[in-house]
Design a protein around this nucleic acid. Structure first.
Length: 789
RNA sequence: GCCGGAGUGGCGGAAUUGGCAGACGCGCCGGACUCAAAAUCCGGUGUCCUCGCGGGCGUGUGGGUUCGAGCCCCACCUCCGGCACCA
């Protein structure tokens, strides 16, 4: 027989699958039969920011591929599409680096990555391919934006936002990591700018509560819960006599109100100017503090300045001095706090530095003191009591506060989805009429960031007329964050060519929610939160019939090379590797390294052993293929091993979501087969090994399957273990004395406990350790007897 | 600082419900085939004592529960991740 040659057989079968449209899935016929079982398998789509993929992608998509084949062969109609997150900073920065136009470079990268994906043999429905930068896609991104805008879920407002001075654009809170830009690492500044926001905060409670309804890793839910940051407390009104106004403050500890000794405003608070416009010291502090990078603000020693003004504490009418200090953040609560130095570390630090009074109002037993009528009350009860007291007098009320901010999604960059809005001097922000969508992104020569949106320099495009009055108006020059594109792409796959709407609701409701989503945990609080928000909002707008997009989620581990996370610019190139070793060896390698959710240290040295295993499989199966076709239901040791392997592999993939141990199980079967080629069940064992390895190494499996005289393994039913062959006639009984293994004896299966004990006592090796004493016995039927003296 | 997760041979890892620790693969040692090499195949491989039979020890550290603990409980150490002036 010829030798195993990965490259040749892989191309052969890839051509067959292509011609057969093997992995393209049809939509359900109207009134689909109840036995129609379907499964939506999706992995996070790649950025085409390079012409290649790294081994982290290879792990991600190979995992999805195993699940896809496994489900298909269990009779499911499986939707497994692919697309490209082709707008946005990653692609645009790559284009700037290469010095070409983003469109040209993005499309070249997509072609190259698509080629690689086909070469990996991944079972993808390419008829549904979608890219964010295609007008046929972003037309509907714009349409969705308009629906959100019309329903008050998208709005424009001047607000302090995160500004990356390197990428020259605003960033969402979710993409500032340790005070730095997630893409380039530059220290982020705060700027006050007119920005577009999605009203994700309106869904804070639902985003929190519905986490209970989805099968996600607990750590991911934790990240989202923490990010939403719901906390319960009270809103308390402090009187500012000079302004004749009440100022609200959020606190989780209204029970400490009697301990408040001063009052602090964030430097960005509009109240600072209202109270101290003429105080140069205060204004200058506020200006400098507000401009400081967030990162620096968080680590510095406390600073602040007294305004000379006072706020009135509603519980005792005391006048509290109002300070301005940058340890109070404008983004959280109301940008003003009551300071209780006795019971808050930050307030205490500030009080000590500026010599402000510290008043204890909760004693060592957790009861109130110095708090008037509330003295003696346990503090938890006082939280309720004082809140009620305030409420009755109109001086406060119970309140819930969130850390989650609205999602700022406008970007001052070129390569993104244009925001279909026209600014009219008379009518404000006016939507571009639906029949004028898509609003095409114009071709420009100079798309590089210059601190203002590149589209703003494009006079011909910017100048337009108001859809309401026909008067002169200007187009919105910002573009959308690429995370808007990826917040609904999974819906478009269900109906990718629809020209009348983003999708047909019946199709989306049929396929969604996604049964299994796989991707990196780095998207835990960005993409995974935005997509949940989009689906909830679209559900409320009557566009779809479910409220969560991803029923089950899995995060693959990081693939590292020499200790560093692999990226498209660092580490071995997947294209080079697949040409050198073949797709099957790489697919098996990346899944064999360990549990898929654990990090992997990549080394190309690990691939050769996988090539050796596949060669061994090839040889052993070829030998078995020469034997006679086996009768059914043979009961031989090899047949039993094959059935055990079916049971193990099936359970590992299906229930345990374990992908490394099935490969080990098939290796064991191949080892047994290689030792017992004369077993009458050799051919059955060979067919079983080939069938079970197919989701991992579909090309060699298909080739061997055909050499075994069969066809179309990719749609052949998954094998079933014969329960009668999983049962054993005899078992090896472990005999322990005082918990230590002293003997192993073969006994018939299913013996009663007293018989097992009798056999164990009969063991000469065990007796040698019993010293003639009569032992107590503990029995695990068919497994173990522990004799204790 | 707060909240998670993880520590098993020389290495990646396995042990699914508290019941044989180390499956499978790598590496290493020995052997077969070969003029030789590659490839392939066979055997061995936690550690210590022992010619051997056999025995002692062993899953980060210390304790506990149990007939029995890698797995459960308590304390600690180390590493990784998330959050971090969030009132």
């Amino acid at each position: 027989m010829d030798a195993y040659d990965a490259g040749t057989i892989e191309r052969k079968w890839q051509d067959v699958w292509e011609a057969d449209r093997a992995f393209y899935v049809d939509d359900p016929l109207p009134g689909a039969a109840p036995e129609d079982r379907h499964f939506y398998m999706l992995e996070m789509l790649p950025y085409p920011s390079g012409n290649n993929l790294h081994m982290g992608h290879v792990l991600n998509y190979t995992l999805g591929d195993v699940v896809t084949h496994f489900r298909r062969r269990h009779g499911y109609r499986v939707l497994r599409p692919m697309g490209f997150d082709s707008f946005g900073l990653p692609a645009e920065n790559a284009a700037i680096k290469e010095g070409g136009h983003p469109l040209e470079i993005t499309e070249r990268n997509i072609a190259s990555i698509t080629h690689l994906m086909r070469r990996m043999g991944w079972a993808i429905d390419w008829a549904r391919e979608v890219s964010a930068h295609e007008p046929s896609y972003y037309r509907w991104t714009q349409w969705l934006f308009l629906k959100f805008f019309e329903n008050g879920l998208a709005y424009r407002e001047a607000a302090p936002v995160n500004w990356c001075p390197n990428d020259q654009t605003v960033l969402s809170n979710e993409h500032v990591v340790d005070g730095r830009c997630w893409r380039c690492g530059a220290v982020v500044e705060t700027r006050n700018m007119e920005q577009w926001f999605f009203k994700i905060t309106a869904y804070a409670d639902q985003l929190l509560d519905d986490l209970e309804t989805i099968d996600w890793p607990e750590r991911t839910k934790k990240i989202q819960r923490q990010h939403i940051g719901r906390s319960e407390g009270a809103q308390v009104l402090f009187r500012l006599e000079e302004l004749d106004r009440d100022v609200p403050v959020f606190t989780t500890r209204p029970d400490t109100l009697f301990g408040a000794t001063f009052f602090v405003l964030a430097p960005e608070s509009p109240l600072v100017e209202e109270l101290a416009a003429e105080n140069e010291e205060v204004m200058s502090y506020a200006r400098i503090a507000a401009a400081r990078p967030t990162e620096e603000r968080a680590t510095r020693e406390k600073t602040g300045v007294f305004t000379g003004r006072y706020a009135v504490n509603p519980v005792n009418d005391e006048k509290l001095p109002i300070w301005v200090a940058d340890y109070v953040l404008m983004e959280y609560g109301t940008g003003a706090i009551m300071a209780v130095p006795a019971h808050d570390d930050r307030d205490r630090e500030f009080a000590e530095k500026f010599d402000l009074p510290i008043r204890t109002v909760i004693d060592d037993d957790g009861r109130l003191t110095g708090s008037g009528e509330f003295d003696g009350l346990p503090w938890r009860e006082a939280v309720v009591g004082i809140t009620e007291w305030l409420d009755e007098r109109g001086r406060g009320k119970a309140a819930i506060n969130y850390r989650l901010r609205d999602w700022s999604f406008s970007r001052q960059r070129y390569w993104g989805c244009p925001i279909p809005i026209v600014h009219c001097p008379d009518h404000g922000a006016v939507p571009v009429p639906e029949d004028q969508l898509p609003l095409l992104l114009p071709d420009v020569d100079d798309y590089r960031p210059k601190g203002k949106p590149p589209l703003a320099s494009n006079g011909d495009w910017i100048a337009t007329t108001c859809p309401v009055c026909g008067g002169p108006a200007e187009r919105e020059a910002d573009t959308m964050d690429t995370f808007v594109d990826s917040s609904w792409y999974f819906l478009r796959y269900a109906d990718p060519h629809n020209e009348r709407g983003p999708f047909d609701r019946a199709l989306v409701d049929y396929w969604m929610p996604i049964d299994q989503y796989i991707g990196g945990i780095d998207h835990a609080k960005g993409h995974l939160l935005y997509s949940r928000f989009f689906v909830k909002a679209m559900n409320d707008l009557g566009m779809l019939g479910f409220r969560e997009p991803f029923a089950r989620l899995f995060h693959q581990g990081w693939v590292r090379q020499e200790g560093k996370r692999m990226s498209k610019s660092a580490g071995d190139s997947a294209i080079d590797l697949v040409e050198k070793f073949g797709a099957d060896p790489i697919r098996i390698y990346i899944l064999f390294q360990g549990p898929a959710d654990q990090d992997i240290d990549w080394s190309p040295d690990g691939i050769d052993p996988m090539v050796r295993f596949l060669r061994r499989l090839w040889r052993v199966v070829a030998a078995a293929a020469e034997g006679p076709a086996p009768p059914n239901g043979l009961d031989t040791p090899l047949a039993r091993k094959a059935h055990e392997t079916i049971a193990r592999v099936t359970d590992d993939i299906d229930r345990r979501f374990a992908f490394n141990t099935p490969i080990a199980a098939v290796m064991e079967l191949v080892n047994e087969l290689s030792k017992g080629p004369d077993d009458p069940a050799a051919r059955f064992a060979a067919e079983t090994a080939v069938s079970l390895i197919q989701p991992y190494a579909p090309h060699i499996a298909e080739e061997l399957w055909s050499r075994l005289g069969h066809e179309r393994l990719w749609e052949h039913p998954w094998p079933e273990a014969d329960a009668s062959l999983l049962r054993r006639d005899t078992v090896v009984l472990v005999v322990q004395v005082n918990g230590k293994v002293r003997d192993r004896i073969e006994v018939p299966a299913g013996l009663p406990e007293d018989e097992l004990v009798a056999r164990a006592k009969g063991s000469a090796r065990a007796q040698a350790h019993l010293n003639g004493e009569e032992p107590r016995a503990f029995v695990v039927p068919d497994k173990l007897v522990n004799l204790v003296v």
